[in-house]
Design a binder for these strands. Structure first.
Lengths: 332, 332
DNA sequence: AAGGTTATTGCAATCGATTACATACGTCGG
DNA sequence: CCGACGTATGTAATCGATTGCAATAACCTT
């Protein structure tokens, strides 16, 4: 009994066949109470532990779900992962995490393998649709991939952006800037479109759009760009497509003596945890990240269970008003 | 050819045995060039993809490494995971992530199974040592479990805390407070010990120690506690055992009109990304999180490869001085 | 030319579980 | 008392690859 005991060892000790042991393990109620007791006893005695690899091979499943994340180090994603994990664990699935930036693009394809994972949650909209098509069940969360037919769990980014901008308009702001996300990103487009639509509906001019990429550093650069404008032309309010950028922006302008929200109102997007504790606390759009993760995981489990629907799940956002936005007195 | 092709289908098409196909897959150089070409052709033609579960069963390995994290939603850990992933992926291992808080304590044991994972990276010091002993190779990162013999990859928390406190002393502060981590945590103890030692070595009185648990909210509460002190007795500098707490602390005191660093110097621990962009930017101790993750992963791969050493790896920290700490003019 | 190498390749056992099918034993209605 | 049926268990095939050993061919050596 040096080696790790296998099912046969248990069977021998209990005086039954391996089939019976297996049944005790996966379908106890069809085994007589007495035999079951014997087998359970033997399992305890031998310290037997099931070999997952063998079971997986037989069942033609892996028990694992892969989450493809563009950047694991980004706190935004970790909270979604947390939601995913909270659903997967009770359902008996492992969560595999792969960073699509860290891995070579080609190897991503390996994850979309039935022998590696039973399903895929994709959080990165920049992956090629063809790599994911016709393989394991896929659910898209937050971002999505144009042309890929898979259920999506997301928010209404356009409407959310409109909420943010309408809030600024409501405060009396007339020159409004938008700091966009990375070019080509589906979220960037939707949030920009929402910004433009909100302004257009009020008959206001198109926004000044500054480039960004969701990162702190790009927020700082947007701050520099704002500072570089002649004071008379500076937008009095800025809507940034991510909270991280908003932090960078505020840090930069405060560093140059600009007061928020006195001199400029700032609103972000995401409601990452820290921004509630800054000075001033950041007004923002809250994405229900945990809920997005949970719903995406549930949706995927449904698909694995045979549900073939591909309809989207749209989760509600919330406009969170804190101290970084304030009314603009037109006469200054 | 409806079904997903298996190795036998490839063999038939190439006119060779399954053994040869397998060799082409895992040991190409021992197959003659001509045969190899034939097989590769057949693989392409059939669209064959290796079944990992079968290979794993035969190899008695899983190709997966589990990281046990106390809280996936915490950005501190996600960056370590990022480092881990960057080493594991090229080495052909999957990263499985399990949130020890989300999962029931019992199920954690399941991860320490050779049939589930080839190794374990534990980032949670609160797990019971016995659950992890005598199973798969383990490496501890950041936190550690007293009584568990396994290589650790960490920083010198005591020395790091001393650096922080010596910095404050050097700025002329004489009343220094420490906001500790969760009780019982090994990091809490080491950082507190370092704080006390630094003060003792200068012949200064023991620090005021406020309770905390690494979270933003507990930092806020520490801020309240600080504010509640009579102004004359307030420590002029505070060293908090995590950056998150430092953010909460600063947010709280600023909210009550206290200026940092004019009225109180604040130094944190970790150097999470955001704190460089706050106003004021936070002075802190930088932990090389990516490097910790990478080293832990490398160490684990070594162990899996047969290296039985259990010595610790201590990575250097860096005192990062920003705007939240300033000299204290004794006469006020 | 016989014996010895070396390079390729195939046969079949193996990894450790699951499960369709067969078997054995009661039980019960007619 | 017989056959039908239900329950509990065993036998053996199966999941899809890997690999030790054997077989064959080609090539040397002396």
């Amino acid at each position: 009994m040096q080696e790790r005991p296998k099912i046969g060892d248990v069977a021998r000790m209990a005086g039954v066949s391996t089939a019976t042991v297996s049944r005790v393990l996966s379908n106890p109620q069809i085994v007589s109470a007495e035999t079951r007791r014997l087998v359970e006893e033997a399992i305890r005695e031998t310290g037997y532990r099931l070999n997952q690899a063998a079971r997986n091979l037989r069942h033609r499943r892996t028990g694992g779900i892969v989450a493809l994340v563009p950047n694991l180090a980004n706190p935004f994603f970790s909270q979604i992962l947390s939601g995913i994990a909270s659903v997967l664990a009770p359902a008996g699935f492992n969560l595999l995490v792969a960073d699509t930036r860290a891995e070579g693009g080609a190897s991503i394809l390996n994850y979309a393998e039935p022998s590696r994972a039973d399903g895929l949650i994709v959080l990165d909209g920049s992956l090629p649709a063809e790599a994911l098509a016709r393989r394991v069940p896929v659910v898209l969360a937050c971002e999505w991939i144009p042309g890929l037919a898979a259920p999506r769990v997301k928010i209404d980014n356009r409407a959310a952006a409109m909420m943010a901008v309408e809030h600024l308009i409501g405060l009396g702001h007339r020159r409004i800037a938008h700091v966009a996300g990375p070019p080509g990103n589906v979220l960037t487009q939707a949030r920009l479109a929402g910004t433009e639509q909100a302004l257009a509906e009020r008959g206001m001019p198109a926004p000044l759009v500054l480039p960004g990429d969701f990162t702190l550093a790009s927020g700082r650069r947007a701050g520099e760009a704002w500072l570089a404008l002649p004071a008379r032309e500076r937008p009095t309010a800025v809507f940034l497509a991510s909270d991280e950028m908003a932090c960078g922006f505020i840090g930069e302008v405060q560093h140059h003596g600009v007061a928020v929200p006195r001199d400029v109102s700032v609103i972000g997007f995401d409601d990452i945890e820290l921004v509630a504790h800054m000075t001033p606390p950041l007004s923002t759009i809250r994405q229900p990240r945990e809920a997005i993760g949970r719903r995406a995981a549930q949706r995927l489990l449904d698909r694995i269970g045979g549900d073939d629907g591909a309809e989207d799940t749209i989760l509600p956002v919330e406009l969170v008003l804190r101290g970084s936005t304030a009314a603009w007195a037109a006469i200054r």
